[in-house]
Every structure is written in C-alpha cells, then in structure tokens.
Nucleic acid binder design. Structure first.
Length: 334
DNA sequence: GGAATAACCTGGATGC
DNA sequence: TGCATCCAGGTTATTC
C-alpha cells in the first residue's frame, strides 16, 4: 500500500524522466480515476494537452506535477493520489495496455535520452514515453488542481522547488500536514497537538491532518519500535515518549525508503514496475502469530478502524488496564 | 470541533 | 469446479 516511502520512490523515479516533458496527448480509459478532478474526462484531457511538466513534488502521500505554461497568479499542477493500489508507470510508446490501466499520458521529453545520461536510474527513451496510471481498486485518482500558498509560507514538500513558487501546494492537499521527514515539520507543534487528542495514538498517527505519510503499515511498525500500545491515549504520552515515537517513525520511514518501500501482492511498484524490499524487514505488520523479534511473544492482530492493527501484547502494553475486546487468536501469516 | 464509523472499490484467498 | 463471502486500507462524508 503506498505510504510515504512508496510515494517518494515514485516521485524520485518520475523526476528525471518527466521534468521538461510536453504532454502531447491524454487517454482517459476509466473516468473513475478522475474522482478528484472537477470537470470530467474531456476537460481533463483538454486542459492537460500541450502543457509542460516542471517536475515532481510530494507532501505525505500526495504527489503533484507542476504545469507550464500557466497563469502566474493561478498556477496549476497534475495532482495524483495512489490510494491503495495506484501505480504510475513509465512505458515506451506503443507498449501494450496494463491490466487495470485507467489513464495514459503521451509525453515528449524535452531533451531526449542523451541529456539524462547522468541519471543511471532513468529509463532511456527515444524522446517519447508514456506515463501510465494503473489502479486495481480505484481508490486512487488524478486531477488538475490549483496551486495555492502553503499556510506557513514554507516550501510545500519534497521536490516542490521545481515550481516557480516552491511554497505552493495543490488546493486538495493544503489541509494535509507535513510529513515527519519534511525539514519544515514542527516537532513541538506535533507534541502540542497530541496533548489535545484523547484518541488512541495509532488513530492519531493515521490522521493526515496531524502527521502525513504514515499509513497502517508504518504506524504499526513505528509503534512496535517505540513499544507503544496502539490504543494508548495520545494525550497521555509524556513529552519524552512522543519524542521517541517521532524518532522511531523517522527511522522506519528512512529504512523503508532505503529498501525501496513495502510491496505486498504487487500492489506497490516503482515507476519501472519493480517491487520494494521493506516487507522483509517488518517486525509487527502482517506477522500475526509469529514471535515478536524483541521478546518472543506472539504478535496479535485486532480489528481497528475498518482495518487491521498488529502489535506485541507483551512489550507494547497499555499503561492502564487494557481493553481486550476485539483481539483475535494468532493465526497463520498470510 | 473532536471523535467514531461507514462507504467507496476490486481481486485474491478462503470456505462450502 | 463454481459460487459466495471475507479481507485488504486511504480518504472523505456523515453522524454523534
């Protein structure tokens, strides 16, 4: 499932390939991939054709490609959210359709392959390439969105310096908090926010208006590393505990980034269709019934917010009497 | 305004 | 073998 590391791997893969590319044509195969776009498929294709991609930027799980030419007062970007199963793939022109292909952009690169010789990871195209949006579960979406000034005036996110004004973020992502790897992330403000939240800490970590980029997998992993029970009240956490949790979140995200992200059932791949390796490094998520790597106790799985939560009940204890309802017996790992 | 929950969606896994 | 059901989870709308 694409969380911060997976989206960042995609962004980093797109940057050398699409920066400066002209959008020569747009095929909308499935309009459900435009749920975030106001105006429908024809409007999407008309407004995108003839524009130039300035680069690739990201905040949390939102990815955007600033566009030119544009009105300096009202710049726009192609916004992408991968949802649960979205993929952005680079393909040679004329490549056969992908399974679950939703949208295909036909690009003409500005400089051709010779200008990208210093970027070994970039595919070598002949000056034309297709950017293909694939999404099995159709929770992902593309849209043309207005770029608006960030609330703090700081750069909008990773890679946002590619735009004329780095401090502009897509309007649909403006409410999204900064991610913990963002240089402008405010640790103190995060601690203050947690003090006002009585919800369980995992619920708060999944709230993208508090902290972005963390989803179910990395929330479970960071809580395991910090030895925190997912249902422990956020407001009850001492400052030292929040500081430790932030450090563990960052460590997990950095490690996942270094390993190319987490791939399950081919639901996440980079722009070249390759899977990441972080699934091999998971300590809690998806390891129901396996021994905890730290204490040997069995990892359990509980239902939580319409999804699963994995933790070690032995070394991630609630500081007060635990609510045990909802726990299921350890079973085989899928 | 905070908190909790359901709905959206599809394909693989599982059970009968 | 075929059909029905469950499950995965990011975001948002709705309800309390």
């Amino acid at each position: 499932m694409p969380e911060l590391p997976e989206v960042e791997v995609v962004r980093a893969g797109l940057t050398p390939a699409v920066t400066g590319a002209l959008i020569a044509g747009v095929d909308v195969i499935d309009e459900r991939a435009l749920t975030r776009h106001v105006g429908g498929a024809a409007d999407f294709a008309d407004r995108l054709s003839g524009r130039t991609i300035l680069g690739a930027a990201r905040r949390g799980k939102f990815l955007w490609l600033p566009l030119a030419p544009g009105d300096a007062e009202h710049p726009e970007a192609l916004l992408a959210h991968l949802g649960m199963s979205g993929q952005l793939l680079l393909r040679a022109p004329g490549a056969p359709p992908e399974r679950h292909e939703r949208i295909r952009l036909h690009l003409v690169t500005r400089d051709g392959p010779s200008e990208r010789d210093d970027v070994p990871a970039a595919p070598r195209w002949s000056g034309e390439l297709d950017l293909v949006f694939v999404d099995q579960r159709t929770f992902g979406s593309l849209a043309i969105d207005a770029l608006v000034t960030t609330s703090d005036g700081q750069p909008a996110g990773w890679g946002s310096e590619c735009a004329d004004d780095p401090a502009r973020v897509p309007a649909q992502a403006r409410h999204i908090a900064r991610d913990p790897l963002d240089p402008a992330f405010d640790d103190r403000a995060f601690r203050d926010l947690l003090r006002r939240r009585s919800s369980g800490i995992k619920r708060v970590l999944l709230d993208q208006t508090v902290l972005s980029g963390v989803g179910n997998i990395y929330a479970d992993e960071a809580l395991w590393a910090a030895r925190m029970h997912p249902e422990q009240s956020a407001a009850s956490l001492p400052t030292r505990a929040v500081t430790r949790l932030l450090a563990e979140i960052r460590a997990v995200l950095h490690k996942a980034l270094a390993e190319g992200g987490t791939s399950f059932d081919a639901q996440y791949v980079n722009v070249n269709g390759e899977a990441g390796y972080f699934a091999h490094s998971l300590n809690a998520y998806g390891r129901t019934g396996e021994p905890c790597p730290r204490c040997g106790g069995a990892i359990v799985q509980v239902r939580f917010m319409n999804r699963s939560s994995h933790y070690c009940p032995r070394c991630q204890r609630l500081p007060r009497p635990a609510r045990t309802h909802g726990a299921v017996e350890p079973g085989p790992v899928r």
